[in-house]
Nucleic acid binder design. Structure first.
Lengths: 195, 195
DNA sequence: TAACTTACAGACAGGCTGTATGTAAATGGC
DNA sequence: GCCATTTACATACAGCCTGTCTGTAAGTTA
């Protein structure tokens, strides 16, 4: 079983990231130990600390993957040919769908900000879903001339996050989605889609 | 200096809670140790574990106080004689003001959910600011007949939280407050204040 | 005033994090 | 194709932290 170094690295890193993800989701970051993670991944702590700076770094990489997956799901349903309004609606639905993958709300919305800090999480968000929302709102002409989009967009993003959290916590999914759609519609009301 | 037991207890508990608050705010829950807290409070860990079940319990009590303070500030500016709409506007402003007390956003919005879990934090919120918002929206007739208020209210609450967080993080306070007010206004548009 | 309870201090037992050291396998130059 | 070097790990270690247990002085109650 001769394996190239790159293969070994890739295998080990992936095993650690997936094992860590499962444990972080199940017990939270604070209650998950590196011995646990290493054991679950089938390696020793030596391997973990060889590939990751520390426990937080491993957590960061788990979140990176998660954020990218969400962003990919959104982009998949919002091709350029859609009108801004349609793209916004479709993207919104895709976001909530994507956040239903088990553990995502906890990782990205609960433990993430606490462990990495709001600044770093914000940066991760901006690189993925938050920016597409801001762009969508801008192109749809939301709040034009009445309110600063840079201030409004994060508020709506927070509402989306909370919607995902609520559904995850057992709230009526249909009602929650409807409420979010209603809020978005109210935001867009009176905005003309193109200049 | 003969002190009654009740006095001693009260003094020690308060010292621990205030010392813990300062450290939790400054370094976060995870990076704050009980030896640090005890030293800062001028007692030993023995006292801490005598008065609190564990570190989380101490954190919970810190948050309890914090939540009550926010709720008190809101109630102070929303006497019953105000119209539902006025009360909602005043309460909103008071909420954002209250959240500007240093450390509150971190305690209540970042570390709180991660350490105590969303369920417990939700309960604390419901007992304080979240319920007044829900009542305010209901009395103002928000979304009447179009959307479930139980689903809508949390989304707006989340937007408020995010507004506080953004301002705390250095965003333009006036713009952010204006955006929040705009969102609230849009939500209320078309709702007649009384049946 | 004597029995009992409360408020704490100090010691102790695991467990965890990050680092340092050692080793086998892979890689790269000659 | 061989040797020097780097990479990928495993193991051992030091320091800190959490929660518990034990002991003691002060306050409370009968």
């Amino acid at each position: 079983m001769a394996r190239t170094n790159r293969e070994r690295t890739e295998t080990t890193r992936l095993a650690l990231i997936e094992a860590a993800r499962a444990l972080f989701v199940g017990q939270g970051y604070g209650d998950t130990s590196t011995p646990e993670i290493a054991t679950a991944a089938g390696v020793t702590r030596g391997a973990l600390y060889h590939h990751f700076v520390d426990k937080r770094d491993l957590f960061r990489q788990v979140l990176q993957r998660e954020g990218e997956a969400v962003a990919a799901d959104i982009e998949a349903v919002t091709p350029d040919r859609l009108s801004p309004r349609e793209a916004l609606l479709e993207g919104s639905r895709a976001y909530l769908d994507a956040m239903m993958v088990p553990g995502r709300t906890r990782l990205l919305l609960i433990d993430g900000p606490a462990v990495l800090g709001t600044a770093e999480l914000q940066a991760l968000d901006d690189a993925t879903s938050a920016r597409t929302l801001r762009q969508g709102l801008e192109q749809a002409g939301a709040g034009r001339g009445e309110v600063a989009l840079d201030a409004l967009a994060p508020l709506l993003a927070a509402a989306f996050d909370r919607a995902a959290l609520a559904i995850d916590a057992g709230a009526d999914a249909a009602e929650t989605r409807a409420a979010m759609a209603w809020l978005l519609e109210r935001t867009l009301k009176g905005a003309n889609p193109d200049e």
